[in-house]
């Protein structure tokens, strides 16, 4: 609830200190994120269409992909790297647009016939 109150008061969302271990991740539980994603059909390809060069992520203090990705596919690890999933991707491109480390996220469309299938959007 407190997070909601912050927004209501017009305060800018608090950014944690640089390199802080917790970025604000799902502190407000609307519905389990997995349930949210279960409403969407995904045809999972064999080839990952997202590739993250985790070496480059180690020096990244912002890790924008972690909070910005609408499908929550990027997970920071304790050693400063990024774990990523490609399976439940909306193919929106937010991750590579938000990423400020040149070349860290390589992104293409998944193979034809695979990936997200939206039906009511």
């Amino acid at each position: 609830m407190s997070a909601v109150t912050d927004i209501r008061a017009g305060a800018a969302p608090e950014a944690p200190s640089i390199g802080g271990e917790t970025v604000e991740r799902q502190t407000w539980v609307d519905m389990p994120f997995a349930d949210r994603m279960a409403t969407v059909e995904f045809r999972i390809a064999e080839r990952p269409h997202i590739v993250v060069d985790s070496e480059l992520c180690e020096g990244c203090s912002t890790q924008a992909c972690v909070t910005a990705c609408p499908a929550d596919l990027f997970v920071p690890t304790a050693d400063g790297k990024i774990l990523f999933n490609f399976e439940q991707c909306f193919e929106c491109g937010t991750c590579y647009l938000a990423c400020n480390v040149e070349g860290a996220i390589s992104w293409s469309y998944p193979d034809g016939g695979f990936g997200v299938v939206m039906r009511r959007s």
């Binding site: 970025v23 407000w28 609307d30 994120f33 924008a64």
Partner: peptide, 20 residues
């Protein structure tokens, strides 16, 4: 996209706030 990344808020949380 840039604003969202800088604010470090999950997009579905913004949406949840709008819904409330």
């Amino acid at each position: 996209v840039i604003g969202l990344a800088a604010a470090r808020v999950r997009p579905e949380k913004l949406l949840a706030d709008l819904k409330k």
